[in-house]
Amino acid sequence: MISWLIGGESPSWDYLRDLFQDVENAAVYVNSSNVVEVVKVSDLSPFHSQVTVLIHPMNVKFLRPIFIKLKGYVTFPLARLRDVRELVERRNWRAIEYYHDWEFMGSWILYDCEDCEEAQRAHLSVDFNDEKAKEMHLEIWKSKNQV
């Protein structure tokens, strides 16, 4: 269906938004050369699984998400467990944590949000490994929610 994206230059956010307008959940990941490597699409309702379009957070070191659309959620990857634990203390925030032999490998943070395209876009601009990632994500959330 959308295989023509793979191997091509990263399309714009607006192009991807239009392309996936009829899909509930979608994600596009690019490599370090800004070439599309993975496209995931799902019409499963969030009741069943909103994570079907998310890749393992360890892969975010190699494949950067440039577009994510989840019905009713905003999501972003996070590399530090202590930051994950602090963020999920907030109401309507949750984490999908990944481990290998008891070692934390990374996480996707999700929070409830409707019509949050700009917030989603801003969260994806934060570097997965940045020391200040938690603070930057909180600022994005606060600007949307005017806390």
Rank of each mutant, 00 (worst) to 15 (best):
H56V: 04
F76P: 00
M58N: 01
V84D: 00
S42R: 06
L70R: 08
I68H: 10
L44T: 10
N25A: 09
H48F: 14
V30T: 14
V35Y: 09
Y73C: 00
Q21C: 08
D43R: 11
V38S: 07
D22A: 11
L19K: 14
Q21P: 05
Q50H: 07
K61W: 03
S42Y: 04
D43H: 13
E37V: 14
Y15Q: 08
S49V: 08
D83V: 01
P77E: 02
K61C: 03
D22Y: 08
S49G: 15
D18H: 09
H56L: 02
V84A: 03
D14R: 12
S33I: 06
N59M: 11
D14H: 11
I55D: 04
S33E: 15
V53Y: 04
V30N: 10
K40I: 07
F20R: 06
R80T: 01
V35T: 15
K40C: 10
S45D: 15
L16Q: 06
V41W: 12
Q21S: 15
V60W: 00
A79D: 06
R85G: 00
M58D: 07
V51N: 14
V84P: 00
E24I: 14
D43Q: 08
Y29Q: 09
Q50E: 12
R64W: 02
E37G: 09
I68Q: 05
L44V: 10
I66V: 15
Q50F: 06
Y15S: 09
E86Y: 02
R64S: 07
V39H: 13
L81I: 05
S45M: 11
L19R: 14
K71Y: 13
N25C: 09
T75N: 09
F20G: 09
L70G: 10
L54S: 06
G72R: 05
R80P: 00
D22M: 04
D22Q: 10
P77S: 03
L54T: 10
Y15G: 01
L16H: 10
S42F: 07
L44N: 12
F20W: 04
V36H: 13
N31G: 03
D22I: 01
K61I: 05
K61L: 10
P46T: 04
I66W: 13
K40F: 11
T52P: 01
N59F: 02
V30F: 04
V84H: 00
D43A: 01
E24Y: 12
N25L: 11
T52S: 11
